[in-house]
Design a protein around this nucleic acid. Structure first.
Lengths: 205, 205
DNA sequence: GCTTTAACTTAACATGGTTAAATTATCTGC
DNA sequence: GCAGATAATTTAACCATGTTAAGTTAAAGC
C-alpha cells in the first residue's frame, strides 16, 4: 500500500524524471542484491520505493531492460575492484585474482546476475545494446592483458592468456557459488595453489 | 486439451506407476533441453505427455524436485562423455577437456541447468539429497584426478589440480554460453592454447 | 455388484509481468 | 488564478505460472 505523495514530492519534470529513474535503478540493485533473482519482482521493487508496479514501466521498458541496467552498474563495481592496488608481474596477477574473488564473494548476487543469470534474458535484447555492454567484459580482459611480465609476448597471445585466466577465475567463482560442497575458501585456496605453480614456471619467454 | 485415456492405457498399479514416473522424467528432460529454463513449465510438460499439470504432483513433490532428477540424468550423460576414449598423460587430459566441451556444447541447456541454474533452487532442498547428488560432481573431479602423468604427485595435490582443471573447463564453457561475443570456437581454441602451454611445462616432477 | 481406494481432472488461489483505462497532478497560455 | 492540455501515477484487468483442494472417474478388493 504505497502512501499517497504530496505535490512537492512529485516529479517536477525533466531532471526530476532522471532522478527517479536513477533511484529506481539504485533500489532495484539493492533489492536484487538482498533477495536474489528468484525473489526479485517488479511489484516488490515498486512497493519498496513507494510506487505501484506499472509506474516503473514509465522508466524502463520491462524487467529485462531494468536488470540489464543493473548489470551495467555491476560491471562498474567489478571494474573498481580490479583497479585496486598496482603491483607488477606475478604479484599483480595475484592481486587481480584476489580482487576478482573479493567482488564475487562480497556481491554474490550481483556476480550471479552478471555472469550466470544473464543468458536467460539477455539474448532477447537488441544487438546494439548487447554489443555495447559486452565491451564491459572486454575491458576486464584488457585489464588482465596488461599484466607486466607478459609484455614480452605478442599482443594476441597476451590477450588469449588474459581470457584464459579470466575463465579460470570465473570457473572457480561460479563453481564455488553453485556447487553446495564447494566454498569461497575452496576457490581462494585453489587460486593460490595455481598461482604458485605458475610462479615455478616463469612466463617470460 | 489432453485426450481422455482408455482404461488400458491407465496405470495398472505398482510397476506401471514407476513407468509413468520415468516417462515424465524423460519428457521433462526432452522439453527442458528443447525450450530451456525460461519456457519450461509444469503445464507445458503435462500437455506434452497428455495429462494435466496436477497429475505430475503425484509423481514429484514439485518443480524443483523434478528438475533435480533431470539434473541426475544430466550428470550421467556427462559421465558418459568423459569416459569416452582412453589415452594417457597429456593426451588423456586433452581428451577429457574435449569431451567436457562436447557435452556442454551439444547439450547446452542441460549444462546450464546443472551448473548454472542450480543455485536458484537447489539450496531449498534437504541436505541429504544435496550431498548425495553432489557426489556426482566429485566423480567428475576424481575422473580428472586419475590422469596419468599426475600419478607422481601426492593424492591431495592431484585432486587439487583436477579441481582447478575442472574449474578452467567450466569457466571456458560457461563464459562461452553466457557472454554474447564469445563462442564455442573461442572456448575450444583457448583450451587448445592452454594445453599446449602446459605441454611445454612437463608436469612430471 | 458394492465399496474402498487410487488416478486424474477441474476449480481455485496467490503471485508474477505487463497493458489499458481511469484518475490525479502538473504545466501552459491567457 | 483559472481552463484546457499533458504528463505521472494508480486501479483494474489479462494471461501465465506453481501449487493445493475438491470433485470425479476408473481400478481393485471383497
Amino acid at each position: 500500500m504505497p502512501r499517497r505523495k504530496t505535490p512537492r514530492e512529485r516529479a517536477r519534470s525533466a531532471e526530476a524524471k532522471q532522478e527517479l529513474r536513477d533511484r529506481i535503478l539504485r533500489e532495484a540493485t539493492g533489492l536484487f542484491v538482498e533477495v536474489g533473482y528468484r525473489e526479485f519482482s517488479m511489484r516488490r521493487l515498486a512497493a519498496r520505493i513507494g510506487y505501484t508496479a506499472p509506474t516503473i514501466y514509465g522508466y524502463f521498458r520491462n524487467k529485462d531492460e531494468l536488470l540489464f541496467e543493473v548489470i551495467a552498474l555491476g560491471y562498474a563495481q567489478l571494474q573498481a575492484y580490479l583497479q585496486r592496488g598496482s603491483g607488477a608481474g606475478a604479484a599483480r596477477l595475484a592481486q587481480l585474482g584476489a580482487a576478482y574473488l573479493d567482488f564475487a564473494f562480497e556481491q554474490p548476487e550481483m556476480y550471479k546476475l552478471i555472469f550466470m543469470h544473464r543468458p536467460h534474458f539477455l539474448f532477447d535484447l537488441d544487438e546494439a545494446r548487447v554489443a555495447e555492454r559486452s565491451e564491459g567484459l572486454q575491458v576486464v580482459a584488457r585489464t588482465m592483458a596488461s599484466v607486466p611480465g607478459w609484455d614480452a609476448l605478442p599482443e594476441a597471445e597476451r590477450r588469449r592468456l588474459a581470457e584464459i585466466f579470466w575463465a579460470q577465475l570465473h570457473g572457480l567463482v561460479s563453481l564455488a557459488l553453485t556447487v553446495p560442497i564447494l566454498s569461497e575458501q575452496w576457490a581462494r585456496e585453489n587460486l593460490r595453489f595455481l598461482l604458485e605453480k605458475l610462479a615455478l614456471t616463469p612466463g617470460r619467454g
